[in-house]
Amino acid sequence: MDKIEAKDLNAWYDGNHVVKNVSLRIKSNQITAVIGPSGCGKSTLIRCFNRMHELIPGAKVSGKVLLDGEDIYDDSVDPVDIRRKIGMVFQKPNPFPTMSIFDNVAIGLKLNGVKDKKKIREMVERSLKMVALWDQVKDRLNDSGASLSGGQQQRLCIARALAVEPEVLLLDEPCSALDPNATSKIEELIVKLKENYTIVIVTHNMQQAARISDFTAFMYLGELIEYGETSRIFKQPEKELTEKYITGRFG
């Protein structure tokens, strides 16, 4: 089943056309990796999936993005509601530095108007357990989020995104600032999370895309060059450009 469908999606920054007529279907409960060289539009593409792109001054979007068949760019849709349903985690772990570990996870719930402290506590515990961080932080929930290691901080950020119970998780190079050990843990976590979430990950690391994703989209100069099952893309890509990129013969 398709969770997200992009139809003739275009995106601009200050007149620069960075995503060009992209149409693709993101499958439910699957991991879709978006790969391509720097500046190919892959981060912009996923930012269009939760209306983050439009927050940038001078940014423009055309085309459609359907979430469960509903156009998220429809006038009647509240972008805040979309961003709650489609969470995002960024390249650099960005816990709120002045907040405790607990508050870093609870913040989304509080901003969404959840006041029941018991429920907040339950959700924080559940989210931290989901990212396998609970046992490491349960006795120091009041410590600063910044006191954690890089890998733990990134897991904290994923827990923060999960606390508001999204349906889709967008991950923009979530491991690029992490060491190999922390990267493996995040990868294992991502694969586990697909049971309950639809995941789209932008990555520069092709081996990471090959390791964890079910589907891979290759973008170049704003265009979607090839999209298909990861096992096929990495064994037998159809397009010469894809072949050149993934085998490192590019440019």
Partner: peptide
């Protein structure tokens, strides 16, 4: 090198 595509084949 973790080869892929035609290299791996």
């Amino acid at each position: 090198y973790q080869p892929v595509a035609s290299d791996l084949r």
